[in-house]
Design a protein around this nucleic acid. Structure first.
Length: 602
RNA sequence: CGGGGUAUAGCUCAGUCUGGUAGAGCGCGUGCUUUGGGAGCAUGAGGUCGCAGGUUCGAGUCCUGUUGCCCCGACCA
């Protein structure tokens, strides 16, 4: 039987829902460190989370948390709770399993794809596993909120979500089952929602700073399946990130996801419009081939890109200058469509176009069959080379407005690295990011369809303005590692480290080293410090490499060598510089330093 | 959902081409020696070789099917 020493008061109030254990001996710690990288790990966080014994894979994208991982997660959750409470949030808990009816009400039972896991219960009732809880929060909001006097209000939960991801990857960075903090706010006006959105934005900045991430930016993002208008994503800048971000050089003026990013490029129709001229361009289908053949730059060409609606019935013709790529997300947004795909050649031919030589000359919008979208790059440049709708021929000197009219002129171009920032005009920088949180203004999207109404001052029933705000907890833990590690393991910030001080006793068995280490272990606990004590008496290098994987910010090495001078050795996980501290003062000095370090994350 | 890969001990892998009845390193147990950056010696435990059929006297190995997992892409609050 193991007996733990319980301090009366701890520096860090470590709230779990179970018995509180502040300290641990390595000889009793559940979960092993691994000396070799898992074969399938490609990111630092994936390698270290598995090797350090924080998580274990159970199935594709499904993980168990081991004790040290659970402690990190609990601390992250606690910081999130504090900051949510600080902006007036009230914690609730909604079910993981939800009736499909609720999702039918909001319309998402139909609109969301296969990532929503659907099943039936024993009574053959349709159910879903919650992937996000707008519907559930609407359901409780509409039953609890009757009057404007009860608004605004924000509820949040920290709950398991399930998304049936097509391809989980990179350890905890992209999983199927995960823990998420999701918050929902309800307001009487757009103005009130705007103001609260800013408060949440500030709360998020505090959270990510407090968990120890240094390279987080909030960027403009696409609203996607959530609907609504305004949204921001909080991104940790990291090479392994899956998201593509454009930033102004100052990192502040403009920040946007590539899905929605715009550039400050201006297209001016300078130059005389020359007569349209048909030229032979044998075996030249791609922009590169045509430009080379006619000795022009891709920027002097226009390309036709064909998409279709998801059912494949309606053709979408996009004309864009040859040096740009179509941004499908922006295209979907301007068309108001949830999904598009590349058109197949049969549909293109059926609409009278010749794939590879398709021409904007002569094509016309046909309601229900053909839609035209012209990017400003093509509309705003004179004398382009475009297809002639005939195998082996192109037109020179195409001018929109003269040789083609109609269609929707809208920005559907991908921003390119180096394009001018729309705010400052300086070249935009391209970065990868990990999305760790997002905030959305949902407006009335859900409250209308789900009848989330309140009685206003004027006695009339009105729908509430809604916002929703998410943070991936496990992804945050992995991201902190991506942002804080060396070649040997994580370097945990004191605020979320599994323990605060790691005591390593060299040759502890039956020696002064063991006795002093044990005493320090107890003294630190008495002072409220969370201690991990490596009492195993393994080889020094073996214990040090385990300590590196555990990443505890402060390390104390107790050995006969330094005890001979009455000292123990102190070093931080980050710096590896060492310092001698008199053994009788060690507990007090360490407790003070832990306290000082924790204060940096308040 | 397309393309590629892979499945043998807790982990990392060899053995498959050329069929003959299970291997290494790490980890784990025991003993002795060791102890400031992944210790040594000795001795053990641990695998119906993903699953199901088939060929064969005999299948980890060959054939067919199937499933899991990983990577790239598509997709994705």
């Amino acid at each position: 039987m193991v007996y733990y020493f319980f301090p009366a008061k701890t520096i860090f109030q470590y709230n779990t829902h179970i018995r509180e254990v502040f300290s641990m001996k390595m000889s009793q710690l559940f979960g092993n460190r691994l000396k070799e990288d898992p074969a399938d790990a490609t990111t630092f966080s994936h390698k270290f989370l598995v090797r350090g014994g924080y998580v274990r894979p159970v199935s594709a994208g499904i993980y168990s948390l081991l004790p040290v991982g659970k402690r990190v997660i609990a601390k992250i959750e606690n910081i999130i709770r504090q900051e949510m409470d600080r902006v007036g949030g009230q914690e609730v808990l909604m079910p993981v399993v939800l009736p499909a009816d609720l999702w039918v009400e909001s319309g998402r039972y139909q609109s969301v794809g296969a990532e929503l896991l659907r099943f039936t219960d024993r009574n053959n009732k349709a159910m879903v596993l919650g992937m996000t809880h707008e519907e559930a929060s609407c359901q409780i909001a509409r039953t609890e909120i009757n009057s404007y006097k009860q608004l605004p209000v924000m509820i949040y939960q920290i709950q398991t979500k399930y998304r049936d991801e097509a391809r989980p990857r990179a350890g905890l960075l992209r999983v199927r089952e995960f823990t998420m903090k999701d918050a929902y706010s309800f307001h009487t006006s757009q103005e009130d929602l705007d103001a609260y959105y800013q408060e949440l934005h500030a709360a998020y900045e505090r959270i990510f700073r407090r968990v120890g991430m240094k390279h987080v930016v909030s960027i403009l993002s696409n609203t996607g399946m959530m609907g609504g208008s305004v949204s921001h994503e909080f991104m940790l800048l990291a090479d392994c990130g899956e998201d593509n971000i454009f930033l102004s050089p100052d990192g502040k003026s403009y920040k946007a996801n590539r899905e929605v990013a715009v550039s400050g490029l201006k297209f001016e129709r300078n130059g005389e419009e020359l007569p349209l001229e048909k030229v032979a361009t044998p075996h030249s289908k791609t922009i590169e081939e045509v430009a080379t053949f006619l000795n022009v730059t891709p920027a002097q060409t226009g390309k036709a890109v064909f998409y279709s609606t998801e059912d494949g019935k309606e053709l979408i013709f996009v004309l864009i200058r040859g040096d740009f790529e179509v941004n499908e997300c922006k295209l979907k947004n301007v068309l108001g469509l949830n999904a598009i795909k590349f058109a197949d050649d049969n549909l293109i031919r059926a609409c009278g176009a010749v794939p590879g030589y398709a021409s904007p000359v002569g094509i016309a919008e046909v309601p229900g069959k053909v839609r035209l979208v012209i990017d400003p790059s093509a509309a705003g440049t004179v004398n382009l080379v475009v297809g002639a709708n005939e195998e082996g021929f192109h037109y020179k000197n195409f001018n929109y407005g003269r040789d083609m009219t109609g269609g929707l002129v809208a920005d559907v171009a991908c921003v390119r690295e180096g394009d001018p920032c729309p705010v400052t005009g300086e070249p935009l920088q391209f970065k990868h990011g990990i999305e760790i949180g997002n905030i959305f203004q949902l407006g009335l999207k859900y409250s209308k369809s789900m009848k989330v109404n309140y009685l206003d001052k004027d006695g009339k029933s009105k729908p509430m303005y809604m916002g929703c705000y998410g943070i991936g907890v496990g992804r945050t833990m992995a991201s902190v590692i991506e942002d804080n590690h060396d070649d040997y393991g994580p370097i945990w910030p004191m605020s979320i480290a599994p323990y605060q001080v790691h005591i390593v006793a060299l040759q502890p068995n039956g020696t002064d080293s063991g006795e002093k280490a044990e005493a320090l272990y107890r003294d630190l606990q008495a002072k409220g410090v969370e201690v991990l004590y490596d009492d195993r008496g393994e080889k020094a290098g073996f214990m040090f490499s385990d300590a590196d994987l555990l990443g505890i910010p402060f390390r104390v090495i107790v050995s006969l060598k330094t005890l001979a001078n009455g000292m123990v050795e102190f070093r931080t996980r980050a710096s590896r510089d060492s310092e001698m501290i008199p053994v009788e003062q060690a507990a007090e000095v360490l407790a003070q330093r832990v306290r000082a370090e924790l204060d940096r994350y308040l």
